[in-house]
Simulated assay, not measured.
Amino acid sequence: MAVQERPVALAGPDRRAQLSLFARNFFKHPRMLGSIIPSSPFLVRRLLERVDWGRARVIVEYGPGVGTITREILNRLHPNATLVVIETNDDFVDFLNRSLYDPRLKVIAGSAEDIQAQLNQLGLPPADYVLAGLPFSTMPAECRERILAASREALGSGGAMLIYQFSPKVSSDLRQTFTRVESDFEPINVPPARLYYCHK
């Protein structure tokens, strides 16, 4: 049964402010963002089409930035589900807290490595999906491996990690960490993106 889409309120900052904040942070932390503009609607749609919205009750998003994907998740999310977004950038955390209000949304200032601790602290069960656009290719190998392993362990039975990247470098790590990995490609994005659907 399809979940009816619900509008997500954007309070205060408009689209121009959203893009400006994203661009400023790209120039400050280019290795953390990977692109000067947020994900295209085509990439967001392709990424989210793999989610079973009728079943999903706990979704975690790493690196939500200015909330481009976050808003689309909330528009599709079941009324009784929870979306946990984990962000290390204080500017983005502040922006999300000011611009999005939804009782299903939990904004966490922290590291993706601590996903299990964050779920425990919120009293939530294992995640149905973990979504990530983190630039894994520019991370130290040890950090990348810890995040992927922690994500796998935080997923429930039948759970999946959905990833988009601008480099194929993470592919081998994904195949070593997850039981099954499917790949896809979205050309209508700046830059074009590779997508990976990783099953526990």
Rank of each mutant, 00 (worst) to 15 (best):
S151Y: 06
T68F: 12
Y101G: 05
M139S: 05
S111P: 10
R76W: 08
R144Q: 02
K28F: 10
E186C: 13
L83A: 01
S40A: 02
D14S: 11
I115S: 11
S151M: 07
R15C: 09
D102R: 09
R194V: 06
V3G: 09
D102H: 06
R57D: 02
F136V: 08
R152Q: 10
G133P: 10
A17T: 13
M1Q: 01
H29G: 04
L83H: 07
H78T: 00
C198Y: 02
L10M: 11
G67A: 05
E153A: 15
S40Q: 02
V60S: 06
T88F: 15
Q4P: 09
F27H: 13
T68A: 14
D128E: 08
G63E: 08
L21G: 10
K106M: 10
R50F: 12
Q4I: 13
L47G: 15
L162K: 03
L124G: 10
Q165E: 02
Q18A: 11
I163L: 13
E182F: 11
R45V: 13
V84A: 09
D52W: 06
P103R: 10
S171E: 10
W53K: 00
E5Q: 11
I37Q: 03
A11S: 13
A117E: 13
L83K: 10
V85S: 01
C198H: 08
D91Q: 12
